[in-house]
């Protein structure tokens, strides 16, 4: 399956960039860029996405290495949790008023 934004005719491959803002936080997707190799992708990501101390760690991932769910499935793929609100704490109301529960 092709990756969003991936065009075969681009000279350089597409990389998705993830930045960790601080220790204790996840790496979060911040954007993408084109670069000839992984080293250049990391350097370019530093210049492009962390000019103002936005991060202390960067991941770059080749976009074509990402497998995505089918965007045309129109939600069918995610339907199974529907009607299963007993999976949420708010479903249980009889304990209302009872402390620390």
């Amino acid at each position: 399956m092709s990756t969003p934004g991936e065009i075969g005719t681009e000279a350089w491959p597409l990389w998705e960039v993830f930045v960790r803002a601080n220790r204790g936080l996840s790496h979060v997707h911040v954007g993408s860029l084109h670069a000839p190799d992984a080293d250049m992708a990391v350097r370019n990501a530093r210049d492009l996405y962390t000019r103002r101390n936005e991060g202390i760690s960067i991941w770059v991932v080749p976009a074509d290495a990402i497998t995505t769910s089918d965007p045309d499935a129109k939600g069918a793929f995610f339907e199974s949790p529907a009607g299963k609100n007993y999976r949420h704490a708010v479903y249980y109301t009889k304990s209302e008023g009872v402390k620390h529960l």
């Binding site: 934004g5 065009i7 681009e10 993408s32 084109h34």
Partner: peptide, 10 residues
């Protein structure tokens, strides 16, 4: 990059 997602190359 945003324009590239629409199918035009850099």
């Amino acid at each position: 990059s945003a324009a590239q997602t629409l199918g035009i190359t850099r």
